[in-house]
């Protein structure tokens, strides 16, 4: 009897399944940008406090990912890309994801407040709230601008890193957030053009589905043009300098050109070369953001940082 009933109960989740709820790959990006924010801040931090602070940001990001998977389980089940996430594949129960998300949110925010300061803790709480509630629950299913506004939660980590070290919000940390914020639309939409997605089937209003690829191309170009002054403006702050400006100018020319090609062509041309230009723009976008942060990171060591 008992043996037979065991077969009917859902497979009990292992620790790895819970770890998958935290979206480890997104976490690594968050750790990198938060770490740069922490290091470029003009206040030295004890290495152990820096370590705990970044860990809290990573766990907080993971917690919001878990809450997102709990809320979006119905969409994830429909879409091919997400169908093997822990909840749709049946490895983790939805209530477990909710519990993990809430518990880790609480732990990471409180521990960050105790380890660093309450401004950093508040920013982390706001980031989790923005991703889980504003983006997942509200915007994602209601507007094609979902990834633009929701991108704010992905953009905030450097500001948290800065706040861990300096305990304040400055023009520098705000510009770092603005850089990721303005970068997200061209980055994501160039991907959305060439990946054959099933957002439409899942009822998610992505710009490519609601307004078509032509409008998406225009939007990529529009946000790209708006991104340039933000990226260059960082060069004129205390964390920038001539070397940053030179590298940023080159990166902006590169990304601008890649987006320009995507903007100028139509669907026929895109189909003809199997979306080569869109794939290129996506790759360039990754290098663009990574190199901007990498330059900021190594700048002080080169002696060319600051004015």
């Amino acid at each position: 009897m008992t043996d037979a009933s065991l077969q009917d109960t859902p497979r009990e989740a292992g620790l790895g399944d819970y770890f998958a709820l935290l979206k480890p790959r997104v976490m690594s990006l968050v750790v990198f940008t938060a770490l740069v924010g922490l290091i470029v801040a003009p206040v030295p931090v004890h290495p152990f406090i820096a370590f705990v602070g970044i860990l809290c940001v990573a766990v907080g990001a993971g917690a919001s990912a878990s809450l997102n998977m709990w809320w979006d389980a119905d969409i994830d089940r429909i879409m091919k890309r997400t169908a093997n996430r822990p909840i749709p594949s049946g490895k983790v129960q939805p209530e477990e994801a909710l519990a993990v998300g809430l518990a880790l949110s609480g732990f990471s925010v409180i521990l960050l407040g105790l380890a660093a300061n309450w401004l950093a803790a508040f920013l982390l709480a706001f980031t989790i709230f923005f991703y889980a509630v504003v983006y997942s629950m509200w915007l994602k299913r209601s507007t094609p601008q979902n990834i633009v506004i929701g991108g704010l939660s992905g953009a905030l980590p450097p500001m948290i890193g800065w706040a861990i070290a300096a305990g304040n919000i400055t023009i520098e940390s705000t510009l770092l957030v603005a850089l990721i914020f303005m970068w997200t639309p061209p980055h994501f939409w160039s991907l959305a053009i060439f990946v054959k997605s099933d957002y439409g089937r899942a009822g998610v209003p992505m710009l490519t589905e609601t307004h078509g690829r032509r409008v998406t191309r225009n939007n990529i170009m529009g946000y790209m043009v708006a991104l340039v002054p933000v990226a260059l403006a960082i060069g004129f702050t205390s964390i920038g300098g001539p070397l940053y400006l030179a590298v940023s100018a080159a990166l902006n020319m590169w990304f601008l050109k890649a987006c320009f090609v995507v903007w100028r062509r139509d669907e026929e041309q895109a189909e003809a070369d199997n979306f080569a230009a869109e794939k290129n723009a996506f790759k360039v976008s990754l290098a663009y953001l990574f190199l901007h942060f990498a330059v900021l990171l190594v700048l002080p060591a080169t002696g060319f940082g600051g004015w």
Partner: peptide, 9 residues
């Protein structure tokens, strides 16, 4: 270990 380390620091 984390909380203990924080306390020491």
């Amino acid at each position: 270990a984390l909380v203990f380390g924080l306390t020491v620091v």
